[in-house]
């Protein structure tokens, strides 16, 4: 998964740390970026780089919401389901997305393009309802706008 060069860099980075465990979250992000999700193999790799038992990686990976231990689509659609978005009609958006993507919350489209997940308030309440596709933030959503976004993001 990591190139040899990247491995070397990461090993050096960890070696420079007084407390290698502090790098675990960074390493998990790295591995996830390289691999799409934190597979068993990736978790073991992270553990190896940080020189910790793999259970320590798993303990963190399963704690955090943004580390995926199961495969996800090429892009993850995070729909904010917290209070300001809720009051602005988030529930309808979810229905619309489920309908359009043909999947339930937590599901991945059959073409592997999208995974649909809820997310806690993303600090975009002023443009609620809001969602993120990957890192990209979209606000003031309407069903029409969502259709446009899906088309654009699928490309």
């Amino acid at each position: 998964m990591f190139s040899d060069e990247r491995m070397k860099k990461l090993r050096e980075y960890v070696a420079s740390l007084e407390h290698p465990e502090e790098a675990l979250v960074d390493l998990m992000h790295e591995a996830q970026e390289a691999y799409g999700y934190l597979s068993d193999e990736a978790a073991e790799k992270v553990a190896e780089i940080a020189n910790v038992p793999v259970i320590k990686v798993d303990e963190l990976a399963t704690f955090y919401s943004l580390i995926f231990r199961r495969p996800v689509g090429r892009k993850v659609i995070f729909v904010c389901d917290s209070i300001s978005c809720w009051v602005m009609g988030m529930e309808n958006l979810f229905e619309h997305l489920k309908d359009r993507l043909g999947i339930d919350i937590g599901g991945t489209t059959s073409d592997g393009a999208f995974t649909l997940l809820p997310i806690c308030c993303i600090g975009a309440c002023h443009v609620a309802p809001a969602m993120m596709v990957g890192e990209k933030l979209y606000g003031n959503l309407t069903p029409e706008k969502i259709d446009e976004i899906l088309e654009k993001e699928r490309a």
């Binding site: 917290s82 209070i83 300001s84 806690c120 308030c121 600090g123 975009a124 309440c125 002023h126």
Partner: peptide
Amino acid sequence: DEMEPGTFKDR
């Protein structure tokens, strides 16, 4: 960390 729902000031 700003995860309190409804909050977007630190962002």
